[in-house]
Amino acid sequence: MSSQTSNKTAGNDGWLKPAVDAAARGMIAIRRCARCGRNHYPPREICPFCLDDRLDWEISDRANGVMLAQTVLHHSNEEKFRARLPLRVGLVHLQCGPTVVAFVDDRCIPGSGVMVSARLDEEGRPVLAAVPQQRD
């Protein structure tokens, strides 16, 4: 099953290639509407705010946000994650608009600022990870 779902550039998913290429370079890609200017995630081919299909990718090395909620997983439905349990995952509300699911560093605290970056997982899918925001 996972082998069928991992290749994001196959079939009708070719439009996602820029997000995969960005994640391969550690960059996070967020969909941005050329008409209304709003950002959304997960990426779509239609803007959920105005239905336009002229959508760009905003690619950056990190996105700032606030961690809204977290969970510590003690159970996984996939063997490959079981060795990594307990595993911390969070919901992060990005400053640029959308809410994303991300792996979160143990030092991230709900309600506090985090920085989110991207990478490719073992199956070639872009995944996001959050660390606490640096204080300047």
Binding site: P42, L73, S76, F81, V101, D121, R125
Partner: peptide, 9 residues
């Protein structure tokens, strides 16, 4: 694609 890869919970 946007939840299951994060631990398959």
């Amino acid at each position: 694609d946007y939840v299951y890869p994060y631990g398959a919970g």
